[in-house]
């Protein structure tokens, strides 16, 4: 089909659309009011609750830090606290960045650029979030075992023989999956950006 034929088809569509009855005033205002309300109600519960849980756990671990006697558990606890503090901030910031792209009379090419950039940032944070999440699963268990009095279990060499290679293997597989999962999305956005 030639472009001219497409234009003529589109003109037909336009003509038919213009013939339709005018949308009722009440309906326009109802849409506006209800959309406003539904947006207010749509609080990002998962992200907020997730962050609160992270902070509570980080504070708990921080309060118990002095009780940890084993040096590696102190290191693990510090890593856990760091991840649980920084990750929610980065994640919430990235989400906020993507949602705060303001829709106004700006040129769509500029808007698309801003939006895709914030999307790339969001996916990158998600990707690292997954990887650090896997690291967290490794570092969180030994300190908690010591705090709970199960120090004997983690003092046994057998525990480390099984736990360490298992944890490393899990982290490797999980990171590979996370990297693959988000690479496609980041690549698509970056391709679009390069074409702008």
């Amino acid at each position: 089909m030639e472009l001219e034929e497409m234009q003529s088809l589109w003109a037909d569509v336009s003509q038919k659309i213009e013939k339709q009855d005018k949308i009722q005033k009440e309906l326009v205002m109802e849409i506006t009011r209800q959309k406003f309300r539904s947006k207010l109600n749509h609080i990002r519960v998962t992200e907020t609750v997730g962050s609160i849980i992270c902070y509570i756990y980080a504070m708990y671990l921080l309060s118990k830090l002095s009780e940890l006697e084993l040096w590696y558990n102190q290191v693990f606890a510090m890593i856990t606290i760091l991840i649980m503090t920084i990750l929610p901030i980065a994640s919430l910031n990235a989400v906020k960045g993507m949602r705060s792209v303001k829709i106004d009379g700006e040129a769509p090419a500029k808007m698309l650029e801003k939006f895709e950039r914030s999307k790339v940032r969001f996916w990158k944070v998600q990707r690292y979030g997954m990887i650090f999440g896997a690291l967290l699963l490794v570092t969180v268990l030994p300190p908690i075992s010591e705090i709970n009095g199960s120090i004997e279990m983690i003092s046994k060499p057998l525990f480390w023989v099984i736990y360490l290679p298992g944890a490393i293997l899990f982290m490797y597989l999980f990171s590979r999956w996370a990297l693959g999962k988000y690479r496609k999305m980041i690549d698509a956005s970056e391709k679009l950006l390069s074409e702008l």
């Binding site: 038919k16 659309i17 339709q20 949308i23 009722q24 309906l27 109802e30 849409i31 209800q34 959309k35 309300r37 539904s38 947006k39 749509h42 993507m98 949602r99 792209v101 829709i103 106004d104 009379g105 700006e106 040129a107 769509p108 808007m111 698309l112 939006f115 999307k119």
Partner: peptide, 30 residues
């Protein structure tokens, strides 16, 4: 611009579940 900008940002964000309000009447019914 507003129409296109809304489409660009909105379509990507609501892939899973549109934040659509329920109305008694159909809005776009040509």
């Amino acid at each position: 611009r507003v129409g296109m900008n809304t489409a660009i940002t909105h379509i990507n964000q609501v892939k899973k579940k549109p934040l659509m309000v329920s109305l008694d009447h159909s809005i776009v019914n040509f």
